[in-house]
Design a protein around this nucleic acid. Structure first.
Ligand SMILES: [Zn+2]
Ligand SMILES: [Zn+2]
Ligand SMILES: [Zn+2]
Ligand SMILES: [Zn+2]
Lengths: 129, 129
DNA sequence: AGCATAAATGAAAATGATTTTCATTTTCAT
DNA sequence: ATGAAAATGAAAATCATTTTCATTTATGCT
């Protein structure tokens, strides 16, 4: 019987995934790479990129984009949340989506969209700034 | 009396804006540049980028991202609105923020933020894709 | 008109993320 | 142990975007 090459697990995927978890479930490829380097893990940047692609195609992580276009990878299944960011000092608060969740769902349905996701962020100046 | 340097209109902004319109109101900086070149307009790529930045800061165009991270600029109406974007074909629908507007305001207040703005986008696959 | 100043422009270089190449190593059924 | 197929990673290639910097252009003033 033929061996199923497709489903062999890579050695790096779990390590990359684990690092992404420790990073708070939200990081760019470069950040994950630097983090692993700092902690003495031996891995190449190329492999980090490939692992993340692979994890994304398996729907284990989501791909979002920073404002500057850099890809950030988010662990799926982790609690979905949004951010309140200070334009001055960069301080970030994780917040609940609340009515945003419903809003996105209803609108998407209304227009017949499927496989739907959303982003929502609030930005302003915090009390200190 | 001092002349107001700030409000002098640039010579290229209108040309870039016009090209974006002719391109269907949806194009990347590189595409706009190539289009202008092809039509014999004399302009530098740098200036195209700068004009688009300027138009974006004046809220005349929106900045979205292709899946590969490339920035695409989209002509938009004056009123504040959000977008429902198809990941497949790029089709975009302008939508109302609805409860998002309240949500952003309430949360920002709750955390003492001022000078507040927000972004919210829904993405998925349209019926055709 | 002629000068001074500040903004606009664009070519070329720099940046930085992501992808591609390719030679080497690892995995694992037989 | 063998060999096919996948995984790895260093270095090079890509490619959008930004930065630099020297030049040009647009005004205001005299
Ligand atoms: Zn702050
Ligand atoms: Zn949400
Ligand atoms: Zn579509
Ligand atoms: Zn809104």
């Amino acid at each position: 019987m033929a061996y199923c090459w497709e489903h062999r697990l890579s050695r790096s995927n779990p390590r990359v995934l684990n690092t992404l978890e420790r990073a708070g479930g939200f990081a760019s490829a470069q950040e994950i790479y630097r983090l692993m380097q700092r902690e003495g893990e031996s891995i190449g940047l190329t492999t980090v990129y490939r692992s993340l692609q692979s994890l994304a195609s398996e729907k284990i992580v989501d791909i979002l984009r920073r404002d500057d276009g850099e890809a950030i990878f988010r662990l799926c299944g982790g609690a979905h949340h949004h951010h309140l960011v200070c334009k001055g000092c960069g301080d970030t608060v994780e917040i609940e989506g609340g009515e945003v969740e419903k809003w996105a769902k209803v609108i998407a349905e209304e227009y017949g969209f499927r496989d739907v996701g959303h982003t929502a962020e609030i930005f302003g100046l915090c009390e200190k700034c």
